[in-house]
């Protein structure tokens, strides 16, 4: 599954400003609401619920919040690059400045997990991460994410 399939260019926030984890999640839920045309509250609640199970900060300044929504019909992603890193309760205590939100339909099952691990793998690539941090426009970020090779990123 290529990231281009689940990320649209208008779902990229190239220079988000947030002061806290909560604010960050709110902002990103708001954008997700626009993309999916679903209520922001519902999205925010579902990702917050997942955060309660354990932080989705995967270390290295990267977070991949995710959740399932019954009212959704495809897998949808939102990407944000932060102006200033915020604390995300990550395992390595590093503040987070790159966030990939992934929302999946209730029945997506295996596809949901596949998409998640795909994202995790792409964001484990030091080159990709470095380029993302250096980009300031939505189109540049979109090109990096959508264009990152689909097999040898592991």
């Amino acid at each position: 599954m290529a990231l281009a399939d689940l990320l649209a260019q208008d779902a990229v926030m190239p220079a988000l400003k947030a002061n806290s984890k909560k604010q960050l999640l709110q902002e990103i839920a708001e954008r997700a609401a626009k993309v999916t045309e679903l209520p922001e509250r519902e999205i925010f609640d579902v990702i917050l619920q997942r955060e309660r199970l354990g932080s989705t900060g995967v270390g290295n300044g990267i977070a991949i919040p995710h959740g399932k929504l019954s009212s959704l019909d495809t897998i949808v992603g939102v990407f944000a690059r932060l102006e200033n890193p915020v604390d995300f309760e990550s395992l390595d205590d590093m503040p987070v400045d790159l966030v990939f939100l992934l929302l999946a339909p209730e029945g997506a099952g295996a596809d949901h997990l596949k998409a998640l691990s795909r994202i995790a793998r792409v964001l484990r690539d030091a080159d990709v991460v470095e380029k993302l941090r250096a980009s300031t426009s939505a189109s540049a970020i979109y090109t990096i994410l959508a264009g990152s090779p689909s097999s040898n990123a592991a």
Binding site: Q49, R52, L53, G54, V58, I64, H112, L113
Partner: peptide, 23 residues
């Protein structure tokens, strides 16, 4: 190591039900 320990963390004090909700 990330592959070894899995990409995400979960709180050991949470229940199996909550894990099921998420995945």
């Amino acid at each position: 190591d990330t592959e070894f320990f899995g990409a995400f963390t979960v709180d050991p004090k949470r229940t199996l039900g909550e894990l099921d909700e998420a995945y």
